Amino acid sequence: DSWHDTVDGIELELHGADEELLKLAKELLKRGVSEEEVRRIIEELLK
């Protein structure tokens, strides 16, 4: 799946992010949310 590559990229960027955020990112990508949107959501949550 192409979203796996996206998640791997996000995981590299979010090496400090907790497991729950990564699960959320994967779930959003699986549901068709764009990579940009996922990054934006996670950045908001990390604030």
Rank of each mutant, 00 (worst) to 15 (best):
E36I: 07
I10G: 07
L45E: 02
T6E: 13
R39D: 02
L24P: 00
S34F: 02
V38A: 02
K26C: 02
K26P: 00
E36Y: 08
E27W: 06
I10T: 05
L14R: 02
G32T: 00
E44I: 06
K47Q: 12
E44G: 07
E35R: 15
E20H: 10
L28F: 02
L22M: 14
L22G: 03
W3A: 11
E13W: 14
S34M: 02
E27N: 03
A25T: 03
L12E: 05
H4A: 10
E27F: 04
L14N: 04
K26W: 12
A17S: 07
V33R: 03
E20D: 08
T6A: 11
A25D: 00
L22A: 06
D18L: 08
E36G: 07
I10H: 04
L12M: 12
I41S: 01
E35W: 15
G9S: 14
W3D: 12
E20Y: 15
E27V: 04
V33D: 03
E43A: 10
L14E: 03
L22I: 13
D1Q: 14
D18T: 15
E36N: 08
D8S: 14
L14W: 10
K23H: 04
E44C: 08
H4G: 14
E11G: 14
L22S: 05
E43C: 03
E13H: 04
E20C: 03
H4W: 11
L21D: 01
D5I: 06
E11A: 12
L28M: 07
G9I: 14
K23M: 09
G32I: 01
L14S: 04
S34Q: 05
L28A: 01
E11S: 14
L12I: 13
H15E: 13
V7Q: 10
G16L: 11
L22K: 08
E36H: 08
A25L: 05
K23P: 01
L12N: 08
K47L: 12
I41F: 07
E43I: 11
W3H: 11
E43M: 14
D18Y: 11
E37D: 09
G9C: 06
K30H: 10
E11K: 13
L28W: 03
E43H: 11
E43R: 11
K23F: 05
E20I: 08
S34D: 07
L24S: 01
E27Y: 04
E27A: 07
V38R: 01
R31F: 10
L29S: 01
L29F: 02
W3F: 12
E36P: 07
E19H: 12
S34A: 10
L14T: 05
S34L: 03
L22F: 06
K47W: 10
S34N: 07
V38S: 00
K30M: 13
D18S: 15
E44F: 06
E37N: 06
G16T: 13
G32F: 01
L12G: 07
V33I: 07
E44Q: 07
E19R: 07
K47T: 11
V38D: 00
I10F: 14
K47S: 10
G32R: 00
L45Y: 11
K47Y: 07
A17D: 06
S34K: 08
R31D: 11
G32M: 01
K30P: 00
I42S: 00
I41Q: 02
T6F: 14
L24M: 07
A17F: 07
E13G: 09
R40N: 06
K23E: 13
L29G: 01
D18E: 05
G9N: 12
E13V: 10
T6Y: 13
V33G: 02
R40M: 09
R39M: 09
R31H: 14
I42Q: 00
S34G: 07
I41C: 01
I41K: 01
K30S: 15
L45N: 01
D18N: 14
R31S: 15
V7C: 04
G9T: 13
A25R: 03
L12S: 08
G32P: 01
D1M: 08
I41V: 03
D1E: 14
D18R: 10
L29I: 09
I42T: 00
E44T: 06
E43S: 09
V33K: 05
E20W: 11
I10Y: 08
K47F: 08
V33P: 01
S34P: 13
L22R: 11
R40P: 00
E36T: 10
A17Q: 09
H15F: 07
E36S: 09
K26Y: 15
V33C: 07
E27M: 07
L45F: 08
I10M: 13
H15P: 15
E44S: 07
L24K: 03
S34T: 09
V7N: 11
K23V: 07
K23D: 05
E13C: 04
V7W: 15
D1L: 11
L29T: 02
K26F: 08
L24D: 00
L24I: 07
L14P: 04
V33S: 03
K23S: 06
I41H: 03
L24Q: 02
L14C: 03
E43F: 08
L24F: 08
E19F: 08
H15D: 13
